[in-house]
Design a protein around this nucleic acid. Structure first.
Lengths: 192, 192, 192, 192
DNA sequence: CATGAATGAGGGTTCATTCAT
DNA sequence: AATGAATGAACCCTCATTCAT
């Protein structure tokens, strides 16, 4: 009998621990030794679970995206009967609580687009983005996809700006502007 | 001192050629050899003009930001008397024409935030962002900084999404939504 | 002690399965994992029967040499009354049928001579070579050791050439030349 | 201007120094660090001249084979009018003087046949063998290719045996047997 | 007895950087 | 100023081996 380890479970555990370090240090800049040290395992163990560094990253992309969307779906429950302002509030509260996830998403987008043979991962991210649109659509009750895409732009662009300067733009202020904007949207009949 | 002039000029020329390769490949992933090869010079020559790889990147950040803002300032001239729709159009036409610049900006933000001892560069980017706000303010004639920050979010977030999927979101559609929104903004008295 | 019998039996079974892979891939190039995979056991099992990789190889050398000589002795029986031509034929038929064994022998000679602390194995091979001489002596009825050594040279050199080019030299042609030569040897009184 | 180095010449110098170490230690067993240390250069320098370890080996095979044949051709001159005994003597004196070359040849045959994608090198060795036949043919004045192939078998098989046991078989004794044999060959009309 | 998870030294290779020319 | 040869630390990855189960 081997050492009793749930291979898949432990692999998932390693993967989840990799998210932060890979986002923070960057795919190219981080070394396997560095990851191993941070995870308090040997490089050999890392390679026991993942065949290459790229493999870690590719599995990590899948993992992050699926986990994100799961959690987003959870958050969007039980808000159906609220006013649009409340729902925008809830959306941006979620963004605020999960700001690092969205920043990691940006980091991952940059890393993926610089990886060779990354078409599969680009595809995954593209699909995840579509999921985000679906979730926001359901959550806000606004069906215009362009508008929901724009909301994702606002979220990504804002967390992106906040990477370099946390004081420059506040999620609360963005929330207020968006709420006002949504009020206008609902009060008028726009082309969108 | 003609030699120094040539030195500085040639250095700037090298720098400008570095922007694409560094953005495309990433600071950590690209090697000095690769840069030298792409520039058709020797590594020795590279080191004649820049003391380290990090030095190239840091000077490049300054160079890109200053050049961007220069060009942005040029673009914003002669639009003062146009309608808000026209001015939003002009803004997004500029974004469209310079999409790769804004994508590089995102890449640079990611690279900078992963560089050790990057406070100076973060600061530079933060200042550049403020410049962008100023330019947009002047260009659109809208003084609310939150709103202008939001526009930058929209621009960055949109080009970010377009990195992974050019079909997912179109700058033209974003332009339309923003124009509608700006029309409402000017027709009403919002808190912002 | 039936368990010990099984242990030794299984060990011998493993060893016999190792011959091909070790000869084919080479001692240094093959890994314990590779051997284990090919044998459809775990590395742990391999280490249960052999203490080190070198140990496998050393035992394998003994195993191959003893098995070879056993089989050679079997073959040389019942040929005593044949003509010299028939006996040379029989010898080379055996070589032909066991060509891969002789090629493995060459491989093993190369591997052994590159192993550190290989004196014991060199010694074993040297003794096996002497056994070959004895067997050939008995088989052909020619007692000149130099001549029999020469026959071994011919066999080894021929299978060696055939490693790189199976068409370059045929065992049948070698057999004919050797038969003619042996006819002359018996018809004359040479110094050897 | 760069450091003045004749790239090709220095590369050839490195290569020639590699022959012994690679033959002695074996392709798989020797490390680039070990080669570099023995050559008193850095690993970086090794990779400046050769793109991979395999590249060194492949170039080395070409180098050894071409150099061998060059030298063999030199040796075979000026022997045309000698008796067959004298010419066999000269042949085996050459073999004796260059025994390590022939042993290396055996090592290289083993290494090449264990390398993946080694068809080109096998081909080169096969061609070199044919050259050896041609040279021996010219040198001994015996045109039967089977006989000359057999001589190569004798040479290779003898130096092969001598790898494990220098006392087991002496080149002088082999020379005598071959001389007698050649006398027989010339005195009779054999089928070969 | 048998497994395969775990280790970290060492494999081939690339890197930023230095420096003789 | 410009080159590219040279360096050796550090890269990703594999290895023989150990050991808990």
């Amino acid at each position: 009998m081997p050492k009793i380890v749930n291979h898949e479970k432990y692999k998932a555990e390693i993967l989840s621990k990799c998210v932060d370090i890979l986002a923070r240090r960057g795919y190219s800049a981080v070394s396997m030794r560095e990851i191993a040290t941070e995870l308090e395992v040997s490089t050999g163990t890392l390679y026991h679970y993942f065949s290459t560094k790229e493999d870690i990253f590719k599995e990590l992309v899948k993992f992050v995206l699926s986990k994100d969307i799961e959690e987003l779906q959870v958050y969007s429950k039980g808000e159906e009967n609220q006013s649009i302002e409340k729902r925008v509030d809830a959306l941006f509260n979620m963004v605020k609580a999960r700001e690092s996830y969205f920043q990691n998403l940006l980091y991952i987008i940059c890393d993926v687009s610089r990886l060779k043979n990354h078409e599969e991962e680009k595809q995954l991210i593209a699909e995840a983005m579509k999921e985000y649109v679906t979730i926001i659509t359901k959550h806000l009750g606004i069906t215009n996809p362009n508008l929901n895409r724009l909301l994702i732009s606002i979220i990504l662009g804002t967390v992106g700006q906040r990477i370099v300067d946390r004081e420059a733009i506040k999620l609360e202020e963005v929330t207020e502007v968006v709420k006002d904007f949504m009020g206008v949207v609902l009060a008028n009949t726009f082309t969108f």
